[in-house]
Design a protein around this nucleic acid. Sequence first.
DNA 1: CGTCCACAGGAATGACGGGCGG
DNA 2: CCGCCCGTCATTCCTGTGGACG
Length: 403
Amino acid sequence: MKASDVLEEVFAQALSSKIFVNREVLRPDYIPDQLPHREEQIAKLGSILAPALRGYRPSNVFIYGLTGTGKTAVTKFVLKKLKSKALELGTSIDVCYVNTRQDDTTYRVIFRLAECVGLKLPFTGISTAEAYRRFMKALDSRATLMIVVLDEIDFLVKKHGDELLYRLTRANEELSLSKISVIGITNDLKFVDNLDPRVRSSLGEVELVFPPYNASQLEDILNDRARLAFRPGVVRDGVISLCAALAAREHGDARRALDLLRVAGEIAEREGADYVGVEHVYKARTEIEHDRVVEVVSSLPLHGKLVLLAIYNIVRSRGKATTGEVYAHYKSLCTKLNIESVTQRRVSDIISELDMMGIVNARVVSRGRYGKTRIITLAVSEESLLTALKEDPYVEVLLDRSR
DNA sequence: CGTCCACAGGAATGACGGGCGG
DNA sequence: CCGCCCGTCATTCCTGTGGACG
């Protein structure tokens, strides 16, 4: 899109909307100029990377913290500043940011890295090893310092192992004119444990931890953004603090807080209101949850949905369910559909998976003489679950019959 | 106070489909 | 393009266990 088109759109939106001036600043990928309560991390990352300005290779950095704690924002922010400073000083630094959830194969990561040093690799046709070789050659001939950011690095490693990581952290031995530093970002704290110890030690030359935000810190963040996003005066009292409080309950996730605020604004706009009130925030919360449930459930395999339906039916009549009850009910559902059922062992795992996805709560309890089981309750609203389940044709059949 | 229920959940293994490397 | 490998879903067999009941 051309710059003038972008502007045109922003103007059109600002003129038409009674609520927003610029809703983009509430999106998760927006990098603000101010990052409240991350001064410490900014300073630390800055000091780690500063040697780059004098042409020295900075230490590799390993960054971890839960989702929505500002890891990506801080990293992008610092690197942007670093790059412009380098430009000022006449030094060259190549920065390459790769999100390995999006580019989730070794080849695609190398493809991106090559792009950053001005090398265009074919989409397909050459082996990963060859791609790597060409990238290294191009990088070295450029005589530069490259800083590679691998975001959500756990995805790449879980799918394809730490091979690439290992090579990148040791790449300096192969390079004579260029140098390379790696910044790895993850929100999986256990991830570090199943890394090759050699990779761990070289990538973790320096580690940076991002603690979760508390409610009042989230409020500061939201206030900053709300000022840019909304027309003056449309956000009612208590809206910001409610968003902050709700997100603080979810391990201080700033992304969640911003989502709540943005969706609340969108709902207000859809309703034709000229303000954003706390009621819009509550609606936003249910809408976000609803969307999440629909998304998660729709991607579930058939037996997962059937187990979930069994849980739903039992919970609706009894309030809670046990593994045995669920399995019996699930089997009867399979009989009705005339399909084969899986074993109880498997159902047990499916229940664990549903628990981890936050669709149900499953707590292991011992009922003494009456054995040990899981007590299962729903973690989401019945309505969301029902609409999500209805989308599956098989489940649809079962629901119609029970009418 | 020992039993024994009703499962939890680990380990080994297999079918199957899709994607990678050569 | 083809074989191979890997992730996913599933089975089989198994050992482990908190606490009410007798």
